[in-house]
């Protein structure tokens, strides 16, 4: 049982690290703000979530587990809300999403023309 927990937690930790890394690279390499926010919020939810779950398997029952669950909940709520607020503020301040020409003709209503 211990070994099973260890293996599961390792898988979670490695997967979380991988998502964090992809998110970080995306944050650096994507061309404009709204695609960057997409990359960053992946690290916020998936990466952080997986790493926290991985740590939870190591923690065992007790106060530590409760605190980890608390951190996970907080970061899920706060991270997503902060991303939303940022995107909204950026949009309000006049930053328009950049749209590649081929995309809007095929996927009907995805980006609005206005």
């Amino acid at each position: 049982m211990e070994i099973l927990f260890d293996i599961v937690s390792w898988i979670c930790l490695v997967a979380g690290s991988f998502f964090c890394l992809t998110g970080g690279i995306g944050l650096l390499r994507f061309p404009e703000f709204f695609s960057r926010i997409h990359a960053a919020s992946i690290t916020d939810t998936l990466g952080a979530g997986l790493i926290m779950i991985g740590l939870m398997f190591q923690a065992g029952w007790g106060l530590v587990l409760a605190k980890l669950i608390l951190i996970l909940l907080f970061s899920l709520i706060a991270g997503t809300t902060a991303s939303h607020a940022m995107a909204k503020a950026a949009l309000k301040s006049g930053l328009q999403p950049q749209v590649v020409g081929t995309m809007d003709s095929e996927t009907g209503g995805a980006p609005s023309k206005s």
């Binding site: 907080f74 709520i77 706060a78 809300t81 939303h84 607020a85 909204k88």
Partner: peptide, 16 residues
């Protein structure tokens, strides 16, 4: 005023 989601979430967070 316009940040509705923010206000709802903050209502949850502040007591915590």
């Amino acid at each position: 005023r316009q940040q509705i989601i923010l206000r709802v979430v903050a209502k949850m967070m502040i007591p915590l």
